[in-house]
Design a protein around this nucleic acid. Sequence first.
RNA 1: CGGGGCUUAGCUCAGCUUGGUAGAGUGCUCGGUUUGGGACCGAGAGGCCACAGGUUCGAAUCCUGUAGCCCCGACCA
Length: 576
Amino acid sequence: MNMTRLLIPTRKEAPSEIESLSHSLLVRGGYITQLISGVYTYLLLGLRIKNKIINIVREEMDYTHANEILMPALQPLEYWEQSDRRRAFGEILFSLQDRKNRELILGPTHEEVVSKLFAENVDTYKQLPLTLYQIQTKFRDEARPRGGLIRVREFTMKDAYSFDLTDKSLEDSYQKMVQAYENIFYRCGLPVVKIDADSGAIGGKGSQEFIYLHSTGEDTVIMCECGYAANEEKAQIKIETNKKEKTIDYTKIETKNITTINKLSDFFDLPKSKFLKAVLYIAKNEAMEDIPIIALIRGDLEINEVKLTNIIKLSGIRNMNDDEIKSYGMVPGFTGPIGIDKNIQVVADASVVPSYNLISGSNEINYHYLNTNYDKDWKADIIGDIHLAVDGALCQLCGKQLSSKKGIEIGHVFKLGQLYSEKFNIKVSGSNQDTITPTMGCYGIGIDRILASAAENTLKKDSLNWPITIAPFHVHIIFLGDEELSNSAIKLTIDTIEDSGLEILIDDRNETPGKKFADADLLGIPIRILISKRNTANGEVEIINRTTQKTTFAPIESFNDDVLDIYSELLNTYTV
RNA sequence: CGGGGCUUAGCUCAGCUUGGUAGAGUGCUCGGUUUGGGACCGAGAGGCCACAGGUUCGAAUCCUGUAGCCCCGACCA
């Protein structure tokens, strides 16, 4: 294709509000352009990349015998009431009414629709296992879109749903998807780590995320040399228990204006692990009533609010403000579990149960208690793991120090179990005249996030460098003078390359070399050919493999051979 | 949803403090000279100064409100 016929609006400068380098280069290269917050137009280059990613995803999905379908973006709100997810998604749901005032939503995901679809069309065990997938536009009214294509409100997702008769069979379906995902990311040239994840609002009983590690990511991953990796919400750590001591009766001690664990630790000259930290929250029950919560944890640890939310089985958790704390008869800075209002639900981290003679707040201003002990002095309604895994914590598996890294979630796989099967009354006939409720899995890939991550992964200052498998074109031919444009021997060779199936972008514009080079760097096409007097005078053209940075010269009549060699060499790198 | 910032030419920005004819660079058009890393000379087109209201003889500029966009946090299948 000739650049004079294409809309590729490259720019010297990106809009000032853009922060991330990859986003800036995607805008400057004329790949995408923003319409409104979190909603982007894909121009020719961006769309070509996106379509290539989609093709790779489709090939790998089809290889697992998943069925491609296409469900509508418009969905009836009733389905979401039936699954009880209307509340869980809340304002994320884009909603609208049709002319008959029927409530509709723009689908943020498709568990409901696919469950109905399955319930109405599959009747017998003989049709299982079955996996359905689609590549489709999702809508989520995010509170805060950010980072270019990383968090957007309208995006393309590959979502797959598996239906199996048994847990063992689900495990097979799940592993097939995991393998397909690894193939997809490999072919897209994107290094990912697979981590244990919290299953969040989708629900279910097991899930993993595929993360592209990068500092601009929104997710925090906890990793160990031994291979253990999980997201921050899910990560389990090994906690050294305090040394066993003889328990002593607690006594009050004055601690004037000493309100934080750090100050207490200095004041008493004791490690933070000798204190009991109390954090107060308000959560909502199903009737949307406020439930007060006190969470207790050892002073050296932090509370993981996701784990806390899961364990108390309530939603909408938030910190109590000072007035609320006072209304429950407590004092900010001096809170503790002893003698508190009976309506407060007490949740204790496992770390405080075998800890001895901890110093805790007394719920009286300027006083703490020395030597408080679990069971003897106070009890919890719920005990469990509610601590946060932080950088430097110890790995539960091997005991080495964990490190924390930021990353972008580009794929997520879940074992849903029978959650939706039950809600949508999905049943199939079994082989023994019985009825079986299938077990489900769901699997998502963010297509746009692959594109953004691939850009991030290969960018250099003012240039992108696409892997050959997803590059918008394979070959970029740059004419530096217009005399060569009409050279028939060159034309013939270019035609030969095109006939071999390679996609060629020809810069036939009347621009200065500097501008052409700068644009070419932004376009990041893997094989670049320069044609100018300087080379054609020797009967040659110049070929640059942008991955290896190697430059070669080849005859005008036969440079197609060299180009094809580089192409196959590059392609090999991304073949599974 | 809390906190902060921004909004003037297609793009990047100045002008606002101290009210008085709308500016630069870049991009675009035309002519010429150039042509291996965002060239040069000349001529042009291009504006509801986000929107609404107010103060004033007069508002891009001062005041009020609204909206849009970005960032931090909360939230995030």
